[in-house]
Design a protein around this nucleic acid. Structure first.
Lengths: 125, 125
DNA sequence: CGGAATCCCGCAGGATACTG
DNA sequence: CAGTATCCTGCGGGATTCCG
């Protein structure tokens, strides 16, 4: 959560975790993995409560790590679409396992199962 | 990183990530998984640079989630030992997969492979 | 529409000192 | 030895405003 993007990380997990551990990040991944490629505005609406600043920060980071791609369409008004890359899909596979583990520990209160992976977001004030 | 221990999390991963994403946490897990059960002082020495405050905070959290156990021996001076629980070991299995993924992405600079899992720590100032 | 820039603030984390 | 208690500080995130 320090890690200002250019830090040299001692090892791979270090680097990956530095990305994933940011607030909203998992939530964003989850939205993209369930909704498919999504435009900026829609994303902001779906990840309800996030500020534009943080959303763009997270997207840039995830893009740098090639976990998601950014497609810019120079129409007027411009359209920008974000979606998971191959890496992003791989990642979600592992995250799903993490989710399965978590579910088995904190035995699920029935129907919340559908919203499984990555609903990680800060508690609403 | 908000999440002051009593927050009700919307879903399992949310809760698990809130624990794992804290700075030093993965590093602590990595040390315990490689060194085995370790005493407080030794842990503080191994996780070099961490403050006692944060170390105890993280240990308490991980203990609450039953990812590690705390064994108190009332000798003089007292001895406290921390080690991974069954859950902790399960968790490390999945984290290892995350590590494998990260390694395949950021292709490893040869010999740093040994320090694989969880070397996640803030960059030294 | 999809951002970049700016300001402001809380609280997580560091350092230090002290106890059972 | 294994922590608590206190104070201090930075910076990460929210809100707002402006740009192409």
């Amino acid at each position: 959560m320090a890690h200002s993007s250019k830090d040299s990380h001692p090892c791979p997990v270090s680097r990956l975790m530095a990305v994933l551990s940011g607030p909203w990040t998992m939530y964003i991944l989850w939205v993209l993995s369930t909704q498919g490629a999504t435009r900026f505005g829609a994303l902001k609406r779906l990840v309800e409560g996030i500020s534009t600043k943080v959303l763009t920060e997270r997207l840039r980071l995830l893009e740098q790590e090639e976990i998601l791609y950014r497609h810019y369409e120079p129409t007027v008004p411009p359209q920008v679409t974000y979606g998971l890359t191959a890496r992003g899909l791989e990642l979600c596979t592992v995250l799903d396992q993490l989710n399965a583990l978590a579910e088995s520990w904190y035995s699920i209160s029935s129907k919340s199962q559908a919203i499984a992976l990555g609903c990680y977001k800060p508690p609403s004030p």
